[in-house]
């Protein structure tokens, strides 16, 4: 399976499932169609969701590397799981493309907006402090103590 994301300067192919000989052809055709439509300066193959890959995946990488060489494009491999990294190393395919781990930046889920929850709570705390502080000021004594 492959999901393609086209941006002005790059094309990202989010691969998923099992990348074997049986599935490689369909993935290859989808990527090549998009590449020939856009000729992206950078093609990213994202392996984060790939559960299995054999040398058919290496064939896919080698073939895309050649295709990009034709017009001077750059190939990047993103987020290969440990086992896929091992297959890449053994085959020498890690020398054909830049390998990056970008999962935290590249795939933010729309629901994940961590700052949205803590920020509204913070003003409440700061508002509480001035309220209690003036009450203490009325008592005067603590102020003198600190002034000395």
């Amino acid at each position: 399976m492959v999901e393609l994301k086209q941006e002005p300067q790059k094309l990202t192919a989010f691969l998923s499932g099992e990348l074997d000989h049986h599935h490689a052809k369909e993935i290859r055709e989808a990527i090549d169609f998009a590449v020939r439509e856009q000729y992206p300066p950078v093609l990213i193959l994202d392996f984060k969701q790939v559960s299995f890959m054999d040398s058919s995946g290496i064939g896919l990488i080698m073939g895309r590397s050649r295709l990009l060489e034709e017009y001077g494009g750059v190939l990047e491999i993103h987020n290969p799981p440990p086992h896929i990294r091992k297959v890449l190393r053994i085959s020498g395919a890690d020398r054909l493309a830049v390998i990056r781990n970008t999962s935290r930046k590249e795939r933010p889920k729309p629901a994940q907006k961590p700052p949205a929850i803590p920020i509204p709570e913070m003003p409440e705390i700061t508002e509480l402090l001035p309220e209690t502080a003036p009450e203490k000021e009325k008592g005067t004594e603590p102020e003198h103590a600190y002034a000395q």
């Binding site: 290859r28 040398s55 058919s56 064939g59 053994i90």
Partner: peptide, 15 residues
């Protein structure tokens, strides 16, 4: 032509 990498036996040997 079918984009076989020619690494099947290499992988079998390594693994």
């Amino acid at each position: 032509a079918e984009e076989r990498a020619g690494l099947g036996f290499t992988v079998m040997q390594s693994f």
